[in-house]
Nucleic acid binder design. Structure first.
Lengths: 207, 207
DNA sequence: CAAAATTAATCAATCGTTTGATTAAATAAT
DNA sequence: ATTATTTAATCAAACGATTGATTAATTTTG
């Protein structure tokens, strides 16, 4: 029989799925309990409240996400290779779980729950700053052209952001079904990767 | 005394503001009525339902938005100038009303109300395809380098998308308060514009 | 047996919507 | 021109349904 940890995870899984699909306010605690096959009261029992559950969903995901990017910066490789590694990781990571990606960016666009927004921001900012560091260092050591580092970061993340979060729109624009996992992995991911590589090469190469 | 049109507009204004801030599900009809200083029943009376009001908010905005981009394509100027005009218009338009921008892209990220999502998609796709056309034509007439046109569109829109929709995050990354109108207009807008111009120049110029 | 986990039942609050009554203005009838 | 009739706009109040949360009782576990 399933132990406490199992049920907690079931609830977290169900909550993440439904929050991602319907938003926080569009998801009822009853529907979460139903999806997780547990009694409603278990949500309060384990997480205190709907807000607490929300927080827990985010923490679980971000905790399994740490590092990786900062590891790249510690390597003794060229700025170009660092950047390529970043693109690689993000093309797989973010796009591997785009429902979570949609969830957190939707939350950032709301003028509510500023404590949760701060939590998300802190976590995302860490990654953004790692990429920024690569670009700034590349400029300083003469590898890259002098560009706007922060805006370049916005372009890298924004391109993926656009494809993933506006997936219905992007699917029509690209002529590919982004919500189909097979298409996403075999066609869209490589395409994003190739585009970003090509784009940044042109953008950052000194004349 | 205010006539029917006035009140309808008051409701639409209030609804757009609150929907943008708190999302559709996070906004009650009572709060809309209160913000607009009208009786709750007027929402059903004029718009049939909360959904109908939502639809009306979107229609009003998109109707006052048409054209402009397709006008650019009709001009007899170089592909470069067309692209620069696009950047210009979007740097002003989209960023001039970022709360609406947040609203529609948040809706696109939800797995709900697919009729409304289709409506938004149709309107946004029109603009995306105009920009795509500029790039495709530029490639065909030899002005631009052979790039991935759709992904380039994703980059243009995505960059702004990232700055606007994740404004709390982008504010910290850029070191500028994007939600402050003065800062946005005098500093962020020109910065986005300069970056996109620089980026696309490098990306599209033939070697 | 005690502690932890789980349940069904219930809570007050809020949700979107509808109601019937009232007002003010426009139109028709005399 | 004055009255009668119809129309549209507005309101407070209430509707049933659903919300997040809690209770007290029961079952499972160690």
């Amino acid at each position: 029989m399933q132990d406490k940890t199992d049920k907690k995870d079931h609830i977290l899984d169900a909550a993440q799925k439904l929050f991602a699909q319907n938003g926080f306010d569009g998801t009822s605690t009853r529907s979460i309990a139903s999806e997780a096959n547990v009694n409603m009261a278990m949500i309060s029992y384990y997480f205190g409240s709907k807000d607490g559950l929300y927080q827990a969903v985010l923490e679980r995901r971000f905790d399994g996400f740490r590092q990786t990017l900062s590891d790249i910066n510690d390597q003794d490789i060229s700025s170009w290779d660092k950047l390529y590694q970043c693109i690689d990781i993000y093309s797989n990571r973010i796009m591997g779980d785009n429902s979570f990606h949609q969830l957190i960016h939707r939350e950032l666009s709301l003028h509510q729950r500023s404590d949760i927004k701060d939590f998300i921001t802190d976590n995302l900012l860490r990654n953004a700053n790692e990429v920024k560091r690569i670009i700034v260092e590349g400029i300083e050591n003469g590898t890259f052209r002098k560009v706007d580092p922060e805006m370049t970061v916005a372009t890298i993340f924004g391109t993926k952001y656009y494809v993933i979060n506006a997936s219905v729109l992007a699917s029509k624009l690209l002529g590919e079904d982004i919500n189909d996992e097979k298409t996403l992995n075999e066609s869209v991911k490589p395409r994003i990767k190739a585009h970003l590589t090509d784009l940044l090469k042109a953008h950052l190469t000194k004349p």
